[in-house]
Amino acid sequence: MKHAFLDHHSQTESPIHHLDARAKIIVFFTFILIGVSSPPASFLLFSLLAMALIGIALLARLPLGHLLKKVLVILPFLFVVTISIPFMKKDAIGGGYNLGLGGLSISQSGLWILWNVVIKSCLGVFSIILLSSTTSFPQLIKGMEKLGSPKIFTMLTSFMYRYSFILIDEMYRMKRARDSRCFGGRWFWQSKIIGHMIGTLFLRSFHRGERVYLAMLSRGYHGTMPETTGRRFGLEEMLFLSLSPFLLFLRIYIA
């Protein structure tokens, strides 16, 4: 079966990978917060943030090319913003293009909005990618839990992580079985089959849920997930965490 990973590179060995998940969650979220809350014209701050993130990526021995490729997920969102710019409020004309249909002009404020969206989403997404590439998913969930995220939420997420791959595998198996029995025909017929497949998948997941619950009960589950041990905050974590107040300082005095 296909083996999917959500957390590529999270098993690499590096000083960043060894840090406690809590420290990484706090620092990367500070990056996002600082990035998002800065005015669009604070070029110096943005470049400092970008340099810091790239520095962390290098320290974590992550291939930059791979990370940048992942940042491309923001493209569809950017596209939506870009096509809506001509329809925004026109104060000062920043430029324009003529399609022979009377012409469209682009306002300066529209361009600022585009820049704002581009730089902030790039920084934000890059931070999240760094977090997920340096922290395995189970550690991430544990970190969230220790930071006070509601237990029901972390429990659901960990189940989702555990079973999403199995569900995807099951879907592929069904798809393969369907295709090997000469699936084809008219659109209407196809949609009916796909409907059946979704229904079957739901039923199977539902029954699996029942069985998993029984397995949990068999091992003494009584309503709350037990806590497991984790690593403690050490000097490295403190050093890494000190990035957060430093970023805050930059945000206040530079931007």
Binding site: F159, R162, I166, A215
Partner: peptide
């Protein structure tokens, strides 16, 4: 089925 027995991430 171990998929039912094993429900934790690690």
């Amino acid at each position: 089925s171990p998929e039912d027995q094993l429900f934790c991430p690690t």
